[in-house]
């Protein structure tokens, strides 16, 4: 089997820029176009958000985009349908990010199988806990070649970070601060210390920072000690304000 695209990408020497967006937003059928445009503009990896009615870990921007996407008619089967030919045109790693309940209702095995058929490389389910994943689902994820990405936060204990590192086989999603998603103005001393602390732990998995990255300066700060950064809310705000035609403007100002 070919090596997972996320793993290949992590071997490149540059800092990685990953973009999150909510599938079905701003319009139901924007999904494929957004992905293609992001790749064209040099983005390294994409997180495709599967909208959920009750996104606990998200701030207002992603909440609103999720609500709108659901109103537009987005649902799991439709997203898979939209993505079915994506690998004909797109070659960067694609990750599905969402909440566990829609995956559970679809059927975890069916969901993973679909992801495999489409060419999805990884999954981020923030509310699927480590222990449940390991006991019930890891074998299924692995059977379909999917990397499950775990989160850590500034509050995560060293012991748990080590356990998450052991369980991970790709990268660790490093949440920048104790917060829900949403763009912040910048990172302070506290974040800097946290980024350094994690980078000094000698983890086997590289880290990619998410939450609160919105522009060139936060991207630069976040990637000083890490492999890359993920931008979500700021990109969605840009889509809201400027529309899907202006993706190059957004990506261009990050690096």
């Amino acid at each position: 089997m070919k090596e997972n695209r996320i793993k290949q990408k992590l071997q490149e020497s540059k800092k990685l820029l990953s973009i999150y967006f909510t599938a079905g937003y701003p319009n139901l059928n924007d999904t494929v176009g957004i992905i293609q445009d992001l790749e064209k503009n040099g983005v390294d990896m994409i997180e495709i958000g599967l909208p959920f009615s009750d996104p606990l870990a998200d701030g207002p921007t992603i909440q609103d985009s999720s609500t709108q996407a659901l109103k537009n008619g987005m649902h799991t089967e439709l997203l898979f349908e939209q993505l079915k030919d994506i690998r004909n045109t797109v070659s960067i790693p694609l990750i599905l990010m969402g909440y566990f309940n829609p995956m559970l209702q679809y059927g975890v095995e069916d969901f993973c199988k679909k992801c495999f058929e489409i060419g999805i490389d990884g999954i981020i389910m923030p509310d699927l806990p480590l222990d449940v994943y390991q006991e019930e689902y890891q074998a299924i994820f692995e059977e379909y070649g999917l990397i499950n990405v775990f989160l850590i936060t500034p509050q995560t204990s060293e012991k748990r970070i080590r356990a998450i590192d052991d369980a991970s086989d790709g990268f660790i999603y490093m949440v920048s601060s104790a917060s829900t998603t949403g763009a912040k103005k910048g990172f302070g001393e506290e974040q800097k210390a946290y980024f350094e602390r994690i980078s000094n732990m000698g983890l086997k998995n590289q880290q990619i920072v998410g939450f609160g990255i919105s522009n060139a300066s936060t991207f630069q700060q976040a990637t000083e000690n890490t492999k890359g950064a993920i931008i979500g809310s700021a990109f969605i705000k840009h889509l809201t304000a400027k529309g899907v035609g202006s993706i190059s403007d957004f990506v261009g100002q990050i690096r």
Binding site: P126, D127, P129, V132, F150, T153, Q155, T156
Partner: peptide, 11 residues
């Protein structure tokens, strides 16, 4: 039951 929570709530 259980605790299906994002890592941010784990601590």
């Amino acid at each position: 039951g259980g605790a299906f929570i994002p890592e941010m709530l784990y601590p």
